[in-house]
Design a protein around this nucleic acid. Sequence first.
DNA 1: CCAAAAGTGTTCTAAATACACCCATGG
DNA 2: CCATGGGTGTATTTAGAACACTTTTGG
Lengths: 226, 226
Amino acid sequence: MKNQNGGLANIRVKPDSYECTITTDIAVFGYLDGKLKILLTKRSLANYKSHWLLPGGTMDADETVEECAKKTLFVLTGLENIRCEYIKLYSALNRHPIKRVVTASFCALIQPEKHPLVLTDNVESLEWFSMDDLPTHIAFDHTHLINDAYNFLKENLEDKLHFGELLPKQFTLSELQILYETIFEVKVDKRNFRKRIMQINLITNTRKKKRGVKGGPFLFEYKLIH
Amino acid sequence: MKNQNGGLANIRVKPDSYECTITTDIAVFGYLDGKLKILLTKRSLANYKSHWLLPGGTMDADETVEECAKKTLFVLTGLENIRCEYIKLYSALNRHPIKRVVTASFCALIQPEKHPLVLTDNVESLEWFSMDDLPTHIAFDHTHLINDAYNFLKENLEDKLHFGELLPKQFTLSELQILYETIFEVKVDKRNFRKRIMQINLITNTRKKKRGVKGGPFLFEYKLIH
DNA sequence: CCAAAAGTGTTCTAAATACACCCATGG
DNA sequence: CCATGGGTGTATTTAGAACACTTTTGG
């Protein structure tokens, strides 16, 4: 029990108090080639050079952690206007080999086809990895961050079943079901899945049929406003 | 979109990067006089002097946010060996009138009778407040932190119904039910409540009867190991 | 026309809810 | 002995799970 210096807790402006680098990392998930993928960057700097890691960076004085996560994502990947959700905070002491760093992690869902990546010299490389085939060399504690993000994604989807960003604007119920089964690694009954998804009342039948597919399935889309 | 300086995101050791004060605040809930209460401290320093706020303080270089929350709680209130859970992170720019501060908030449940408070000169005052009768002058954005903590508490209890720390080791089912009804501000059916709580299989009937109460109710306690 | 995928309804089971009386104890 | 609170079971409703056949379309 250190630092019992009187009133420490209330002194939020104490000039000599410890200050810490805050970083953000963002787990961007996409659905590609029938697989759930995550976007990783290849590190070009010392400490874990050429290891893969989540896109992330240090927070500046004039931005919230969420703004930082979005800005960093743009700088590193060109991705813009992405909705992201805060996951959790990592404050263990040994996270970075050289310097103490506290990290806020975020999660985002996008449709890779609609969001082309832009490779800049800010990263050595940029790639979508299948969740079941992640690279072996991952920097820092990002293996944990990735797993935590995947679990967060599953919990959130299970509650809300809002996959909107992972699919094209219009999609068939089979496509939605396959996405569900891919993410959760389960098989579900078609009728029960449809009953459940329609009950949630988030998607609507456009009455248009998708051409080029046997059976002539209807196209659905997410309802506006929520 | 500022700070597009190359490789910023990967440079976690960049020497001139912004560093920020991190603080923790902890919402300690207790059940006293039939009401759910929260422990607040009275601020003795400039900026919101004599306003009430959650016990909190700045994180040091050698501690995680959770360690900081526990240490600070001890320093300010004498409370020790309290289990606490991380709630969320606050990083808005205007949270403190003078200095940028990023705060991690925590939640804890204790039984006030078992944990006497120790008033030191670290705080001006220290008091349990009913959740439905909070003081009017609350410092910083702690009104939000308090509400967020209360909602967090409710969500967690609803899932797990683990009130262990809020009651004496042994308690009657009526006491447990009244606590439930107090926290959630609802009335529930006695038989259904009992069915549900016994189904969860977290508490066990000691077969001892509580004396001094009409009807001679049995005393229950939480099972060990979980 | 036929193979492949889409669409659709009912039964069964489990969980949640509504509801009323008798029993034990303290005073 | 009586007033107060404690203890208990059943019937109903609702949500989730299991399950098979017909229709539409592409090739």
